[in-house]
Every structure is written in C-alpha cells, then in structure tokens.
C-alpha cells in the first residue's frame, strides 16, 4: 500500500480524490456565497467578487462548483457502496454454494450485463423520478452484476486452494471459512472495485444530470452543464468559459482522480496480478 502510494500516478489520483473530499467537507467555509442565493447580476464575468462569474440567474458559479462536490461525492459513494455490497454478497454466495443458486444468479448477471447501461438508467430514472436517493439506488442496483462476476470468479478459484480445503477438512463451517479466509482473500479486490465504482458512479450521475434526469432542486455539476447547454446560443457568447467549463472540468477531475487511484492500486490489490512465484 505504501509502495503503491509512492508511485506518481497513484499519488496524483489519491490527491485529487482527497481534494474532492476536502472541498465537499469544508464547502461552507470555502464558498463565498450560498450556491442558491442570487448573489449578483446575471452573466457577470469572473472578477475578485465572483471568482468564476455568475450564471443566467445571477448565482455565484464558484460557490456552486464548491457545493456541487457534496452531492457528487455522497451519491457516488452511496451507489458504489450499494453495488459493492450486493455484488460481493451475490458473488461470494454464488461462488461458494454453486449448483442451482450459482446458475440462477449468473443468468441474472448475464441478462444485466447484456443491457446497455445508459438507456436502462434513463428509463428507470424517468419512471421512478430522479431524486437523489433514487439515483443512488438505481445506479447501485444496475452496477452490482459486474462486481458479482469478478468476486464469484475469485471465490471459485479460492475454493480450490489448499488453505480453504484444509480449513474445511478440519471441520471449519461454511460461515467460519467465509469470515476467516474468503473475506480477507477477496478484500483487496473489493477495495479496488469500490474505488473504480466511485469513478463510474460519478460519471453516470453526471451523464444522467446532463440528460435532464437529476434532482432539479439540487446544486450539482451535471445539472450546471445541463443548464448551460440548454441555454440558447451559449457558444456564441463567452459565458461558456466560466459557466460550462468549470463544471465539466470538476466532473472530469473527479472521475479521473478515482479512476487513476484504482488503476494505480490494481497491481497491489488485484489477485490476478500476483505473481505465480
């Protein structure tokens, strides 16, 4: 872990993720204005008073960017936790129990994986109503099958290993083996899936917001991009420079931060990467 953090790639990813977390945590202290407050005239250019200018109704863009870190992070964390928990439970259960349970679970996973994610997300979010809680549930529940498949294949190979067989041979119950051997063994993989999952959830949430499927009362980056882009003739003005660009960059940096962190951690955490020795 320490060795991994020493690599510049991982360090930069970790730094971005940390920055995002700090901004989200201290949003009230950092942001000069309330993000919903009409802080000045519409379409102010960036100035000392409004670092990134104001939007179409005179809200401070910088403050919105800062406050936007909160829903972005909480939703991505929530969706990733949900996907990881369900995926690990199904994957472990499926891999260990085998037989009919495994067969049925994997058929369900197959069907989910065959569906293009975004159209399904759009349909479900439109039907259920795009509140923040709903979006966390929807994104989490659509992403778990990928986790399940990874964890299952890991569990299957673990089941054949000597130490697991030995524990079973000495009379260790299923629960004991899972808690004592399997959870620690798949732990690193799960951490990895979780980190990468945050990046994907951020991206999906922003994509849905861009399509108009987000909580319209929230202050979020995706919604800012959406509002800017539906503004007629945006690109023929210079407003995009401080209205669209910062929000898009915030999303990009957030996604890249967690993704790079995941990529950097992979050699350490993914069991497929361990040398046969």
């Amino acid at each position: 872990m320490r060795a991994a953090l020493g690599r510049p790639v991982v360090a930069s990813g970790a730094l971005l993720a940390l920055l995002l977390a700090l901004v989200a945590l201290f949003a009230p202290a950092i942001a000069p204005y309330d993000p919903r407050e009409l802080a000045g005239p519409a379409f102010e250019s960036p100035s000392a008073e409004h670092l990134l200018g104001t939007n179409d109704i005179g809200q401070d863009v910088f403050s919105q960017i800062v406050w936007g870190a909160r829903p972005a992070l909480t939703m991505a964390l929530g969706a990733s936790v949900l996907a990881t928990v369900v995926g690990v439970a199904v994957g472990l259960g499926s891999g260990l129990l085998g037989g009919a349970v495994d067969h049925v679970a994997m058929r369900v996973v197959d069907v989910f994986l065959a569906i293009p994610q975004l159209p399904l997300l759009v349909l479900v979010a439109a039907l259920a109503g795009p509140s923040q809680v709903n979006l966390v549930l929807i994104i989490g529940l659509i992403r778990w099958p990928m986790y399940a498949r990874e964890v299952r294949s890991q569990a299957l190979s673990l089941r054949q290993r000597g130490f697991v067989q030995a524990a079973r041979g000495f009379g260790g119950g299923l629960g004991y083996v899972v808690a004592r051997h399997l959870v620690p063994a798949v732990g690193p993989l799960v951490v990895l899936l979780f980190v990468v999952g945050i990046a994907h959830a951020l991206l999906l949430e922003a994509s849905l917001a861009f399509l108009g499927l987000s909580d319209p009362t929230a202050v979020s980056w995706g919604l800012m991009v959406n509002r800017a882009l539906v503004f007629p003739g945006l690109f023929f003005t210079s407003y995009w420079l401080w209205w669209l660009l910062p929000a898009g960059l915030a999303i990009t940096l957030g996604v890249l931060g967690f993704m790079v962190l995941g990529v950097g951690l992979e050699p350490v955490f993914n069991p497929r990467w361990r040398r046969t020795g």
């Binding site: 197959d110 069907v111 065959a114 990874e150 990895l192 990468v196 995941g262 990529v263 992979e266």
Partner: peptide
C-alpha cells in the same frame, strides 16, 4: 490477458455477453 488495461475494463466496463 490479465493486467491493468484488460482487467480494469472488465471489472468496470464490460463483461462477456450471455
């Protein structure tokens, strides 16, 4: 084949079809 490029894509993005 295993590895950063392949696996991460598999885990996050795609998986074999039915």
């Amino acid at each position: 084949p295993g590895g950063l490029e392949g696996e991460l894509l598999c885990a996050g993005e795609t998986a074999p079809g039915p």
